[in-house]
């Protein structure tokens, strides 16, 4: 347990960054209460997507760079919900419900593919995700949706790249049970929802299937010799990750207020992977709490760096900084894990 919370260079770096940024924000007179509120919202907004990586990590499939597969399942669920004109919390939960079967089917197929490429799941997942996005691009362009708010205003055929959710379920979770505390808005309902999901996921890893998953991730031969159907468990992990990713994008989109289709989800896997590593996971057995901590650290720097970059007159710097942070952390984790593996094997 102790070793899992070991401070690695990325954590030290990001903590130092946070302190510097907070000092900068304070200096620039940016209200800290607003920042905290934003940070909490963004924690949940991205947290579910980050958590969705855990089943696959724990089952030994590595980081799910094929996250777009799950995201597309969620987008489809939401499009259907909007098409059926579901509004409010019913709209959000309706979308989540619809995306379960979609995610399960896609996850099953994706899992079958990944079982073919053992040991290369990450790169294969990346490109399966990328190609799936382009397949979905076709779909969005021709899908027979009927709600005019979703369609191109001219011609009325094909979905718009960005669909506003105002009037459907924009920010329904953000606003439920939220209350103000000084200049800090606490999105209480959102936090409760997130906590429930986190606890359920945590408990899952203490069921028979959950323990089998973790064992498979650590040692496939052991699991196989102990009577676990390794392929089935791996597929189950991919299905679970895919459905959670679908839910993740639902939470994300309602919080953002817009549905972004087409190529928008292309690169979404990378910040999520980075958040997992920031939480102290190193690409294998990952606790739910690590995903939560990692997301919080990542999103808080995101929230603070924006206004500061604006104050510095170079708005792009926030985006560049985030890109370097994201990929630097992932690369660090890979190099660290590679070195560790070499020592263990040797």
């Amino acid at each position: 347990m102790r070793s899992r919370l070991h401070l690695q260079i990325p954590q030290v770096f990001i903590l130092v960054m946070l302190v510097v940024l907070l000092a900068g924000a304070f200096h620039a007179g940016i209200p800290l209460g607003g920042i905290m509120g934003d940070a909490l919202v963004r924690l949940v907004m991205n947290g579910v997507l980050v958590m969705s990586m855990i089943p696959m990590l724990n089952a030994g499939l590595g980081v799910n760079f094929g996250l777009p597969v799950g995201i597309c399942a969620g987008l489809l669920g939401m499009c259907l919900a909007v098409n059926f004109r579901l509004t409010g919390l019913a709209g959000l939960f309706g979308a989540m419900l619809i995306s379960i079967p979609i995610g399960a089917v896609l996850g099953y197929l994706y899992g079958r593919l990944l079982n073919r490429v053992k040991g290369r799941e990450e790169i294969a997942g990346t490109f399966v995700g990328f190609s799936f996005i382009s397949i979905m691009n076709f779909f969005w362009a021709v899908a027979p949706f009927t709600n005019p708010t979703m369609l191109w205003p001219i011609g009325g055929q094909g979905l718009r790249p960005v669909i506003g959710l105002q009037g459907y379920f924009a920010k329904v979770l953000n606003h439920s049970w939220s209350f103000r505390l000084g200049d800090l808005t606490v999105p209480f309902g959102m936090l409760v929802f997130f906590a429930c999901l986190a606890v359920l996921l945590h408990l899952f890893f203490h069921t028979r299937a959950g323990t089998a998953m973790v064992a498979t991730g650590e040692n496939e031969v052991f699991a196989g010799l102990s009577g676990v159907d390794v392929k089935a468990i791996r597929t189950l992990a991919v299905i679970l990750s895919t459905v959670l990713a679908a839910w993740g994008i639902c939470v994300y989109a309602q919080s953002y207020g817009f549905l972004e289709l087409y190529s928008a989800p292309l690169m979404m896997a990378f910040p999520a992977a980075s958040a997992i590593f920031l939480g102290g996971s190193l690409g294998h057995r990952t606790a739910v709490i690590q995903a939560v901590i990692g997301t919080f650290l990542f999103q808080t720097t995101y929230v603070i760096s924006g206004p500061i970059a604006n104050a510095l007159l170079v708005p792009e710097v926030a985006e560049i900084f985030r890109m370097i942070l994201t990929n630097g952390v992932i690369l660090y984790a890979m190099l660290y894990e590679g070195g560790r593996r070499r020592r263990v094997q040797g």
Partner: peptide, 9 residues
Amino acid sequence: RVRGKEMIT
């Protein structure tokens, strides 16, 4: 350092 995972790296 990352033999076997070169492509993603």
